[in-house]
Design a binder for these strands. Structure first.
Lengths: 214, 214
DNA sequence: CCTACCGATCGGTAGG
DNA sequence: CCTACCGATCGGTAGG
């Protein structure tokens, strides 16, 4: 009957802290994620919360990691069984819309990476570095899929993969803003129309997206 | 020889506070804009700083207003003498790039509206409302310019102005992220290529941007 | 996992 | 515009 919990119980507690921490950070940012609030909300002591992470910065990094796992599970995993190239790319893009639109419980304040990226983009340190690293990984994956699509002839030869990924990112930043700030129900459809311009039947003939070899 | 300053002096002090406050908020957000830090940086007392605004929220709103004035002066004003329609729209877009790229002194952490929008988009209250109001005003102005361009035959008939403005916004969110997070020097050129796709010679034939009257 | 505590900082007020 | 102060909260530690 000691207050000391088993390893498995401790792990579950840690998961609970992280899950709620991600929700808080989604709304108030990784700075707004305070140990005191977390403790109050979960009916724990501050020391009990902090003991699982050591420092606030470690907690922030853990929240980021947890959110990355959710993103991978929600956006990447469902598309993995699709054939590489345009089909998989389109599946990822559609799942990405779903991710931003529906995960209101896990991310009540919208995508945590968008929040964290803007919050830390002008600072330095481990959190900023972690955000940058994650964004780079996803860009690389998207760009690889674009290149496969080009090789398969599903996108026009000469397509600038980085340029396309850059514009895809802009489309999703716009979607997140539209959903969070204006709660606009038409935002998903606007995003799909933007995607059609980038990936759809209209795109292949578009010279601005191909490399400037002139 | 009283410590009481004249009205003009008080105004100048207020401007100094606001100028530095905008710089701080650009990096650390409108929540990170604390009265104590402002006072220390400016060699004043906290009460002296707060006296100009009353509450922190009023200070945040004043910083937002000040940033809006800078945005208008930098992005809109230089384009005002251009003929309405596509020419003015293009001038605004180019000035917008300059605004994000060069104003490192006034906005060391990037565009304050992008920061504030993401910071407050999941909350409620006067600050969030002010951010939303400003974004709506700029969108309306951009959309009006698009419609003029359509009426002049500079953009294809049937162009969905809101859709175009939505995608323009995404392009600039991407630019801000690219500059702040990765300091990418090629970001401006990527943005211009995106603009070419939306506004340039390649755009008129693009069916995805016109209304779906099917 | 807890209680009890630390110094620092927060926004804000009183009074001049 | 200042000094002096308020209660609340911050991240974090000691000790169990």
């Amino acid at each position: 009957m000691s207050p000391r919990k088993s390893v498995a119980e401790a792990r579950r507690t840690r998961d609970r802290i992280l899950e709620h921490g991600i929700a808080i950070a989604s709304v108030d940012g990784l700075d707004g994620l305070t140990i005191g609030r977390l403790a109050t909300d979960l009916g724990m002591s501050k020391a009990g919360v902090l003991g699982h992470f050591g420092t606030k910065e470690a907690l922030q990094l853990a929240a980021l990691d947890g959110a990355a796992a959710i993103f991978s599970r929600t956006v990447w995993a469902p598309a993995e069984h699709r054939p590489p190239g345009l089909a998989r790319l389109r599946a990822v893009c559609e799942a990405w819309i779903t991710y931003l639109e529906t995960d209101r419980d896990t991310f009540p304040g919208g995508c945590l990476f968008t929040t964290a990226a803007v919050e830390f983009d002008a600072r330095s340190g481990p959190v900023r570095d972690a955000v940058g690293r994650l964004l780079r990984v996803w860009r690389r994956r998207l760009a690889a899929e674009v290149r496969t699509a080009v090789a398969e002839g599903e996108l026009p030869a000469g397509t600038d993969a980085e340029q396309l990924v850059y514009e895809l990112g802009g489309l999703y930043l716009a979607l997140n803003q539209e959903l969070q700030l204006f709660g606009a129900p038409g935002a998903a459809e606007r995003t799909r129309r933007g995607l059609d311009r980038l990936l759809g039947p209209g795109a292949p003939a578009d010279p601005a997206l191909t490399s400037r070899a002139s």
